[in-house]
Amino acid sequence: MSPAGPLRREVRWSDSDAGRVVHVVGCVTDEVYSFLGPATHALARSGLDQSVVMIDDVQYRHHLVSLHERAELVLAPSLRNPMRQWREVLKALRQTLADSPPRAVHLHGIVPCLVGAWAVRTSGIRAAIFYSPHGSRAMGRFKWIGATLLWLFRPLLQPGSNTAIVNVPQERRAFDKWKSVDVIESPASDVFLTVARNEARHPLVVTGGREHNPRNAELLAQLAVLLTDDALRIGFNWIGSVDPVSRQRLNAAGVSVFDVANDAERAQRLAAGWIYVAPGGTRGFPVFLVEAMAAGLPCVAMDTPQHREVIRDGETGFLCESERDLIGCIATLVDSPTLRTRIGEAARKEARERFGEGRFSSRLLAAYSFDSPTASDPDSPAPLEGAPA
C-alpha cells in the first residue's frame, strides 16, 4: 500500500518581497528544534516566508506548535523503511520547490543535507544552500561515516561554494574546506533569562529533557539513590517528558517527574531548583543546560565536549570527570548558599551575553546575508490539510 501524500499546514504568504526560505529536516529532535524553532521566528520577523519539510514522527510532534505560525509545514509520512521514508521526503521537497522557487534552502542534518542537495541540483533552481548537522550521529559517535559521506558527495554538496552553519563549535572542523562556516549557538528564550529565582525550602536538584533519553534518566536515578539521606533531605526533579520505563525507574528512585508543556512552565520549575545537573552527554547543542544557566541555576555537568563549550569550570558552572566528582560538587553547592548565588549569577550573565535571542537573530541573518528584521509577525495560519479531526 502506497503512503498517503504529505500533510500541509497552509499559510497565506506575506506581502513582503523578501523571498522564501525552505527548511529540510528529518525528525525535529530537541537538538534540531533548539536551532530550527528560533530560526523560524527570526526569519519571520525579517519578513521572509518559510516552508519546513520534515518527517511526521509522532514522538516529536510537540515541537511543531512552537515553530513560527507563519511557517508552512510539509509533513512527509513516517515510514519504517528508511529508503521509502526518504523518497517521501524527496517527493515532498520537490513539490515544495516547484510551488515557488525559494531564495534559500537550509538543510538540517546529514541525511537531509544529501537529500536536499539532490533535490535542489536536479530541480534546476538557483538558491543559496546552507548546511547544519545539529548533532547528527554521523558527526559524533559515527563521525567517520559523516566524514566519508561529505567526501563522497562533494560534487553534489559543492562545499567550495556553499555555507555551513553549526551551533556546536566542535562541529566546525568537519567543514573546514567549505566556502564559509558560521558558528551560531542556539538561544535561550527570554522567559529563562527573566524568571525570578525561587529556591525550594529544601535542597532540590533538577534536570530533564523533552526527548526520550533512557540513559540520562538512568544516571539521574542512580544519583538520587546515592544521595538519599534523611538528614540532607535532597529532592530530585526531572523536568520534561520520559518514556514509561524511565518514568518507572525515576519514580522508584524518588525522583519527581514534571512533563511541562511550554518554556514558561519549565522556567518556573527550574527557578525552584538549587542545582541543575547534567549527568550525561548530548549529541548536539546542550539546550537544557543553557536554559538552566539562563534561569540562574548553578550547573554541575559531566565533562563532555558539548558541556565544555558552554561552561567555564569553576566560573559559570562545574565540569566533573566522574560520578564521585559530581556528587562532591552537589554537596559543596548544597552547603554554600553564597557559592550557589555567585555561580548562578555568573551563569545567567554568560547566557544573557552569549545565548540571547537578539544575538542569535542578528548572527543568523548575517550568515544568510539578509537584512535586519523590519517586518512584524503576520496573522495565524490555517490548520494542517488532511490532518485528522
Rank of each mutant, 00 (worst) to 15 (best):
T40I: 06
H41S: 09
A42W: 02
L43I: 08
L43Y: 08
R45H: 12
S46C: 14
S46K: 13
G47F: 12
L48F: 13
D49L: 13
D49I: 09
S51W: 02
V52P: 00
V52K: 01
V53M: 03
V53W: 04
Y60S: 06
H63S: 05
H63G: 05
L64H: 09
L64Y: 14
L67C: 07
R70E: 11
L73F: 07
L73V: 07
L73A: 00
L75K: 02
P77M: 10
P77T: 07
S78H: 15
R80G: 15
N81P: 02
N81G: 09
P82M: 03
R84C: 12
Q85D: 05
E88R: 14
V89I: 04
V89D: 03
K91N: 10
Q95D: 03
T96L: 00
L97H: 03
D99E: 15
D99S: 13
D99I: 00
P101Q: 01
P101F: 03
P101H: 05
P101E: 07
V105G: 02
H106Q: 12
L107I: 03
L107T: 03
G109Q: 05
I110R: 09
P112N: 10
A119G: 05
A119C: 06
R121T: 12
R121N: 07
T122E: 11
S123V: 08
G124F: 03
I125R: 03
I125P: 02
A127W: 04
I129Q: 15
I129A: 04
G135L: 04
S136W: 04
R137S: 10
R137M: 08
A138V: 04
A138H: 13
G140M: 08
R141P: 05
R141H: 13
F142D: 14
I145M: 13
G146N: 08
L149R: 01
L150N: 08
L152M: 13
L152Y: 11
F153A: 08
P155M: 10
